[in-house]
Amino acid sequence: MNTDPAPHRYRVVVNRAETPDTSTLTLRPVDAPLPAFLPGQFAMLYAFGIGEIPVSVSGRCGAGGLMHTVRAVGAVSRAVHDCPPGGFLGVRGPFGRPWTLPAPRDADVVVVAGGLGLAPLHPLVRHLRDHRVRYRSVAVLIGARTPDDLLYRAEYRRWRADGLDVRVTVDRPLPGWNGATGLVTALLTGLRPQPGRCAGYVCGPEVMMRPVVRSLATIGMPTSRVELSLERNMQCGTGHCGHCQLGPLFVCRDGPVVPATAAENLLAVREL
């Protein structure tokens, strides 16, 4: 764990708009690079003088550079989202527990993403695509509010070409949308993972993740084979500030990726 309290400087080399309020930044280290991040881990991104927010790696995560997808919501995320190429951000990390990879050989892999939840899953999807032959099947189920809120939309075709079963649904269709409408759980129809050889990776709003875990169980994927990525208030990244507690978990250290078996009971308690 990196407990260095000061951020390392990174330069923004690309700032690509994903949706009207979300963009993906590619960062290159100015100083000595931080250790390589693993898919599922997160960084604390700092906008000079404004503040710091936790953001999962959402693409490249080696020592040479980082990719983060950020939605402009508050003052800090707005500043990070707006940081132009050539601008500077501070980065601390890597923090937290990554997705368990690789999944078992010949497994049926199901990835379920809701909204911005596809961002922390993006490096995992890349891994699955790069190692597609290792698995029996790989399904990537993506839900978003509207077609305009879909992240990385240009990549879906390539993922499909590389053998991933990419299924997409939206809550509210817009003119020109020919795809599915409705809950992401409906996309599970027809999937039959082998209970003893499968893996599920889920990230999205908590109201979406709980039914997804239940639905995965009904199609044969035991909850013990599912991982979730959680979100809580995080300020230190090292388990020292206390904000990210969810029952016994420090989400920054014991998460953000946690086994669904551990998260299930905790998420069921209101305001825990």
Binding site: Y46, G49, G51, Q235, C236, H240, C241, G242, H243
Partner: peptide, 14 residues
């Protein structure tokens, strides 16, 4: 009790 918050501040010049 050990919990702590961090706050980022600037001077007027930024």
């Amino acid at each position: 009790c050990f919990c702590a918050r961090v706050t980022d501040v600037t001077d007027l010049t930024g």
